[in-house]
């Protein structure tokens, strides 16, 4: 499997986002990737419970709410992935003894759910104005049975794939902040997917820049 075809399967589906759509949370955003849609809300910095407080930094709590049923281990795993990414970029030492709460609600799942959650989380954190060292974005790659790499797969493509990987890429140096993989793949395929995700992330970061520019166009 040395020669991996990276052909026409690598497109990013139509994506869009809306910020500041909820009045109660300090920051909120919804991110759409094709039909997958996630709504994120951020509260913070706010009062923290004594048993959870950390003396020199803010406590970050992430909650992922599924659409149907109670939250289970799968949601906990996603929460862990998102939390570790956010903790790496947030300047939490600026708000000691406070709590930052990030709530993600799955509105529709049509593949690439974890990367959609990451993107929504980043936009919500931006909307809340929380200080971050760099931005991050999520990209999902799937390797299907013909060893084709597909970025941003739909649920159907995810089901038929041999391996599924999600990477959180940061904006400064395009480093990988978090990776979550499923299935079997070779080392070479992994590196190719990482390189591909880094290329794809450029588009998403440009999108962040454009939406913020548009949002503040009347003020600046």
């Amino acid at each position: 499997m040395d020669q991996i075809e990276t052909g026409s399967g690598s497109v990013l589906r139509e994506y869009g986002s809306e910020q500041n759509l909820l009045s109660k949370p300090d920051g909120s955003a919804t991110f759409l990737q094709g039909d997958t849609s996630v709504l994120a809300g951020v509260y913070g910095p706010a009062e923290v419970k004594v048993n959870k407080e950390i003396y020199d930094r803010a406590t970050l709590e992430v909650v992922v709410q599924p659409k149907v049923g109670m939250s289970s281990v799968r949601e906990r795993a996603r929460e862990q992935c998102v939390r570790e990414t956010c903790e790496a970029v947030l300047l939490s030492t600026l708000h000691p003894r406070s709590s930052l709460t990030l709530i993600l609600q799955v509105v529709h799942d049509d593949g690439s759910l974890l990367s959609c959650c990451l993107n929504a989380a980043c936009m919500a954190l931006m909307d809340a104005g929380l200080p971050m060292g760099r931005l991050f974005c999520g990209v999902t790659c799937a390797i299907d049975s013909d060893s084709q790499i597909i970025t941003d797969p739909t649920a159907q493509q995810e089901r038929e794939s041999r391996a599924l990987m999600t990477f959180a890429i940061d904006s400064k140096e395009r480093n990988v902040l978090m990776s979550s993989t499923k299935g079997s793949f070779s080392v070479k395929e992994l590196q190719q997917c990482i390189a591909l995700s880094q290329k794809a992330s450029e588009k998403i970061f440009q999108f962040y820049r454009d939406s913020v520019k548009r949002r503040y166009s009347k003020i600046l």
């Binding site: 690598s10 497109v11 990013l12 139509e14 869009g16 759509l21 039909d35 849609s37 591909l196």
Partner: peptide
């Protein structure tokens, strides 16, 4: 929901399907 997102709002933005550049991926890897 994608369609019902208001396009005229200043806080909303949408982008169409975009192909990812594949050149240089093999070499980078």
């Amino acid at each position: 929901f994608a369609e019902s997102m208001p396009k005229e709002r200043i806080t909303a933005l949408k982008r169409d399907e975009a192909p990812v550049e594949m050149t240089g991926v093999q070499e980078m890897a």
